[in-house]
């Protein structure tokens, strides 16, 4: 299983699965930040963006993720002030330029995006900005890996750990996981050749009967990670329980703003506490994200649920397993009909 959505993207984009021997199956893990962000947080972002006097800034691909009734692009079309940015620091600039507006950055993602969000909040305090807030739904990789490994149905025999997450965090926290569950973990990069080497290193460990943590992505990852980034995150965030779309609540699996920075927490400032959302009962995203089912096992796949009208998050992002399967579906079907 590759953990990170960026790796899934490379695998799909370069057609790597077709190059591997058929005995090897790659399971796409829960590492697409768009896919695992719970519906409830998206509904909260939509509620905030619809309020007068608010500018909601977000990374681009969160804008199209459907909440229970609409998405952020629709909010923008209805007159909400929704901006697409490439960095939370851009949102900070928007806050400086619009002192009469409340500017909320929709901070989602893994340990990779967390340092920049921590930096934005830290800077906001340093600059004395009173109109910048973070709607924070950060998630952490190791607890999700443990949740998958501890599930009795899990068939995952090896992991490609996410290279950029480990660039920030290092890989020490994976060592006890590899030992406890007797599973090889290889920290892997994002170029096609990185992924193939990561797969090779994992298979080699399995063949040799080893279950170690190895580092394929040595040009970026150090054992201890990026220490200044970790220090900043430790100051701004604290570990909390988080709901994962499709996986449910995992203990100690995310970040929220620490007590010292609570004044920047959008969930504390805006009246959105009453928003409680349940996922579509048709969608089996949870089982897909855990690698228990394939997207086309879902009765809604390609019918009620398509990239144009997604029911669940894995159909939204180009990294999502369902969207990738949907694209290949016509190809496979037509190939079969031609050869038959």
């Amino acid at each position: 299983m590759e953990i990170c959505g960026g790796q899934t993207h490379t695998i799909v984009k370069f057609g790597l699965e077709g190059l591997l021997p058929k005995e090897l199956t790659l399971v796409h893990g829960p590492g697409c930040p768009v896919c695992v962000t719970p519906l409830e947080i998206i509904d909260k972002a939509i509620a905030i963006a619809s309020m007068p006097g608010v500018i909601l800034a977000s990374f681009g691909d969160m804008l199209r993720v459907p909440g229970s009734s609409k998405d952020l692009l629709t909010v923008r079309a209805e007159g909400g002030n929704v901006r697409m940015v490439y960095s939370p620091l851009d949102a900070l600039t928007i806050a400086k330029q619009n002192p009469d507006k409340k500017v909320v950055f929709f901070g989602v993602g893994f340990e990779t995006t967390a340092p920049a969000n921590a930096m934005a909040v830290w800077q906001a305090r340093r600059l004395g900005l009173r109109n910048f807030f973070l709607l924070c739904s950060h998630v952490l990789v190791p607890p999700a890996m443990e949740a998958i490994l501890s599930s009795p149905a899990s068939q995952v025999q090896g992991f490609l750990a996410a290279g950029h997450v480990c660039t920030v965090m290092g890989y020490e926290e994976y060592i006890p996981l590899a030992e406890k569950y007797n599973v090889p973990i290889v920290v892997t990069g994002f170029e096609p050749i990185d992924i193939l080497q990561g797969v090779y290193m994992t298979v080699k460990q399995l063949e040799e009967g080893r279950a170690d943590v190895e580092n394929q992505y040595v040009r970026s990852v150090r054992r201890e990670g990026n220490i200044p980034a970790r220090k900043l995150m430790a100051e701004v965030f604290e570990v909390t329980d988080r709901a994962w779309r499709g996986l449910g609540v995992i203990l100690s699996s995310g970040y929220k703003l620490s007590m010292a920075y609570a004044e920047f927490d959008a969930e504390q400032i805006f009246d959105i506490e009453s928003i409680r959302t349940v996922e579509s009962p048709l969608c089996i995203a949870g089982q897909v994200l855990q690698g228990l089912k394939r997207p086309h096992d879902c009765p809604a796949f390609g019918r009620q649920c398509t990239p144009e009208k997604p029911l669940g998050a894995p159909m939204v992002s180009s990294e999502g397993a369902c969207a990738a399967y949907y694209r290949y579906r016509h190809y496979r079907t037509s190939n079969r009909s031609v050869s038959a």
């Binding site: 960026g6 370069f14 691909d61 697409m84 989602v108």
Partner: peptide, 19 residues
Amino acid sequence: IGGSRVVDMLSGEQLPRIC
């Protein structure tokens, strides 16, 4: 690198990925 993939039509506008 030798693999192949389907190049699909875009659904909606192309939105930059988070990571």
